[in-house]
Simulated scan of single mutants.
Amino acid sequence: MKKTILILFIVLVSISFLQGQTYRIDYQMTYKMDSTKDETIKKKMILDVKDNVSKFYSYNLYHIDSLGSNQIRKKASDYDFSVIRKTKDNTTEKYFVIGLDKYSFKEDAPKFDWKITEEVKKIHDVNCQKARLNYKGRNWEAWFAKDIPFQEGPYIFNSLPGLIIDMRDSGNNYIFTMTALRKDVGAVDPIAETIPVNRKQLTKAYLDYYNDPYKELKAGKAVVKVVDESGRQVTPNFNQLTELKQKDIKMKNNPIELTDAIKYP
């Protein structure tokens, strides 16, 4: 029944696609933080498309925005993989949380050299066609639906002649699968205030955090209670904690855009 409703809605969208309306596509994102392990994380993501702007962000940010509390939104930190793309000025803005700070990085939108194949199949009973892409260290396979008349997809990916329904890299480090599609949803502004940076400044912020990940704690900007096995509060051993954190950061250095991975010492 759910598939039937989705197919019917796709048909309606293909017939009644109009400027000025917001279309929302839900994706199930499955990814590996550590490429050497089989463990994966599942994350619900949202793609909002309206006129010349598309916004890709987590369901957690949408939920926080819908609560209408500015104070709660300021505390939200689920910015991973968030992107706002503006077709009119051909820019892509990405968002990051490093330590206690939120950053935004704007750059020219990439041009994708898609290789569209003749291979077709049905996904959720929707006719799809396969395309391949080599981009920033990963080989991607995408299935797009020509019957859905906008050239959008998950994260920064776009410009195929139809909506991307399923996309994954050759190592299954990142998988995006569309789960829902609807229109006339309310406008959402999921991104709170950020610090604008360029690529060099963003890299420096990551390296500074790696070198001293507990800087805020030591400076009293954040408070964490550390207890021993008996429940007694103890003074944190920051040298030991830093070593463990640095090891964890290196293990989880597996970004979508692989060639942009930070080179930690």
Rank of each mutant, 00 (worst) to 15 (best):
K115A: 12
K130H: 03
Q129H: 06
P196C: 06
M251C: 04
D65P: 00
D248Y: 13
I164N: 00
M167S: 03
Y59R: 13
N254F: 09
K221F: 12
E107I: 10
F96G: 04
T22F: 05
G20E: 08
P110R: 07
K115Q: 14
Y210I: 04
Q201M: 14
F17R: 09
S159A: 08
A142K: 02
Y62T: 01
V234C: 08
S66R: 14
L12W: 10
K130Y: 06
I156V: 15
K106M: 07
E257D: 13
L163V: 03
K94V: 02
I7H: 08
L8E: 14
S230G: 04
S66L: 14
P213I: 03
E193H: 08
V224S: 05
E257V: 02
N90A: 13
K225C: 12
I10E: 04
C128K: 03
S58E: 04
D208W: 07
I15H: 06
L244C: 01
D113Y: 08
P265F: 06
M167R: 05
Y174S: 01
K204H: 02
I7P: 00
M29Y: 12
R199Q: 10
Y23I: 10
W143P: 01
L202F: 08
K122S: 13
L181W: 03
I164P: 01
I165Q: 06
L100K: 14
G99Q: 05
A131E: 02
K94F: 00
F56M: 08
K183Y: 08
E257W: 01
P236F: 11
E193K: 15
G171K: 15
K55M: 12
I175P: 00
T87S: 11
D212P: 01
K2H: 11
I10P: 00
A187L: 15
D48S: 07
D65W: 12
K252D: 04
D51T: 07
D212A: 12
A187F: 11
F105S: 02
R24A: 02
R85T: 12
I5M: 12
I191G: 06
M33N: 09
V53K: 15
I116M: 12
K122G: 03
T91Y: 09
Y23K: 03
D80I: 13
